[in-house]
Amino acid sequence: MVSQAIQPKRNRIIQWLAADTMEGIRRQRALLGYLFIAPSIIGLLVFIIGPMIATFGLSFYKWNVFRPPEFVNFENFSRLFSDPRVFTAFRNTFLLVVMTVVMLEIIALALALSVHRLASRPLSYFFRTSYFLPVLLSGAAVAVTLGYMFHRDFGVINYYLGLLGIPKISWLTDSNVVLWSVSLTTVWRNLGFTFIIYLGGVSSLPTEILEAAQVDGAYGWRRLKSVVLPLLSPTILFATVTDIIKMLQFFDEPFIMTRGGPGDASRTVVMLMYENAFGNLAFGYGSAIALVLFAVILLVTGIQFALSRRWVFYS
């Protein structure tokens, strides 16, 4: 009985999708399109877009799991802007970003320009591999390793500096030095990544323009400043933006090396968010911190692209 009732309906659907007409193929492909994107779209909605909206919503609530959420309006944000620890964490993060990104971009660009001009292929392969190897390691492994090397009394770094006559430096326990240690650690791990991006940019420079510049008498520093760097500016923008976004989310290295110490001297924004949300179960306040960080990331990226109109040269 039931199957007989369904039968004509099924036939109609099959006819509607029939492959022997152009219309049918078009409909098939459209249906297939929705089927194909469904797993991805559902995943992104449930685990990225939905949670992003939820973070926004949660930042107006006070919630610690044990009691039902309570709407507190802008209380989390007013607390955030008057919390000296938030200020410290943002200051530390900005300092880390500036120190790390400046070192990364200058060293990586210099390395890329130098490796590119090497005549010997095996030598160039050796250098590329050496710079890239640390990229393979996890932030956790790097933080543990460099943490040992930076040890004040037993660390390798102070031992060799001692041979040069430099007195012992408290890399991880002096609040004036600790940001440098964390930053150098991150530079070490990420240098290969930035280097590879610059090497890609340098290798695709148009040789005709470089040769024309040499014919016109532009050599050395002059050639670098007025020909090579302008041609590389899109790559520089891309690498800098990616590095800044990555470094604004600083977590593994300071968390493992110093736990944010001494005091709050190396506490970053993400660490503060983690401790508030998952240590104190202050989900609302943690969400507010996460939201401000996200806004900062968007703002910094926007400013960079706006400024880039002045100096980035697209040929």
């Binding site: 991805s40 779209i41 992104l44 449930v46 685990f47 990225i48 877009i49 939905g50 949670p51 992003m52 939820a54 973070t55 949660l58 976004i245 989310q249 977590f251 993400v270 968010m273 949300a277 998952f278 989900f283 943690g286 969400s287 996460a290 939201l291 960080l293 996200f294 990331i297 968007l298 990226t301």
Partner: peptide
């Protein structure tokens, strides 16, 4: 929409994802 989600860092969504 897919491209827009590339802008969202993991830390900005971790709290609701944890609750979920």
């Amino acid at each position: 929409l897919v491209l827009a989600t590339m802008m969202i860092p993991g830390q900005a969504t971790i709290i609701p994802v944890f609750i979920l």
